[in-house]
Design a protein around this nucleic acid. Structure first.
Lengths: 150, 150
DNA sequence: CAGCCAAAGTTCCTTAAGGGAACCCCAATT
DNA sequence: AATTGGGGTTCCCTTAAGGAACTTTGGCTG
């Protein structure tokens, strides 16, 4: 619902939520990522209302995360990830990893990921871009950056 | 708003959204992570309505992501991350990283992260837990896992 | 020991967003 | 000329968010 606009906060988490924080948005990106790129496919797969799907797609296109691309001389469109959107897939993979670990239960994870580089079933973990060591919540100190203090 | 219940989908992303997908939840976790642990602190810092904050905290406690802990003989409580919640901070760091990269603009990132292990300002990146090579959206094939097909 | 204070909620009302079903538009087929 | 099918709109109903006022609990103060 989000009547409070997160986009204006001096916080990159809040700003990111302004782009993909509404319900359904991450699932739309997931579907587009795995190749479900058309309106009716998305609507049927997600069970989302057409109205809301229209709004979400427009917002994601507007934010530069998806691109709306005609694929026929008739008015037919596919949605594709932009570079900006493709980098959001990192977020999806971390969400999937957490869900697999904490919510999958007896049945095990619904989806597995095979890594091209090594060919193994694996999952993503966070490492420091500088030194390559693991980097989790307790391993960092947040400090004010140049864009601090709105 | 989310009247559709994501928790029942055979998708770890959807299930994760069922835990922290409502508006405000990630920001609440961020604040708790950096040490804002009390109701009035959270309310004032976020500008969230007290009603919604109550609901969100109850849900997060219910899901085992936060722990509600008394800190006084009077009825006073602090919220703390559980182990399950602490691992969600990975998600926050990835969100922050994406927002820093794509939404920070001229001013630069509002918050910087110093990595304890190397002492440098850095950010998290995704690597394969198996082989240690980078692991992004385009580097994996999703395939059905044991918990597939609801 | 009566009154006060502060943290942590609760209640109630208004407004906006999601759900769902029906409808519309456009261009190519038949 | 009628049909089909993708890609949306429109409308109504319900539910959730915002916001401000109110309540509760137990310690503290004079």
């Amino acid at each position: 619902m989000q009547r409070t606009k997160f986009g204006e906060m001096a916080c990159s988490i809040a700003r990111t939520l302004d782009v993909i924080g509404e319900p359904w948005s991450p699932l739309i990106l997931r579907d587009v990522w795995v190749g479900m790129t058309r309106f009716d496919q998305l609507q049927a797969d997600l069970g989302i209302s057409r109205k809301v799907l229209t709004e979400r797609l427009a917002h994601l296109v507007d934010q530069g995360v998806l691109e709306r691309r005609p694929y026929d001389r008739r008015p037919r469109y596919e949605y594709h990830l932009t570079a900006k959107g493709a980098e959001l897939v990192d977020l999806l993979m971390v969400m999937a990893g957490w869900g697999d670990r904490w919510l999958a239960g007896e049945a095990g994870p619904p989806v597995l990921y095979r890594h091209h580089a090594c060919g193994e079933i694996s999952h993503a973990e966070l490492r420091c871009a500088h030194c390559g060591e693991p980097m989790h919540g307790g391993d960092v100190d947040p400090l004010p950056g140049p864009g601090a203090a709105a």
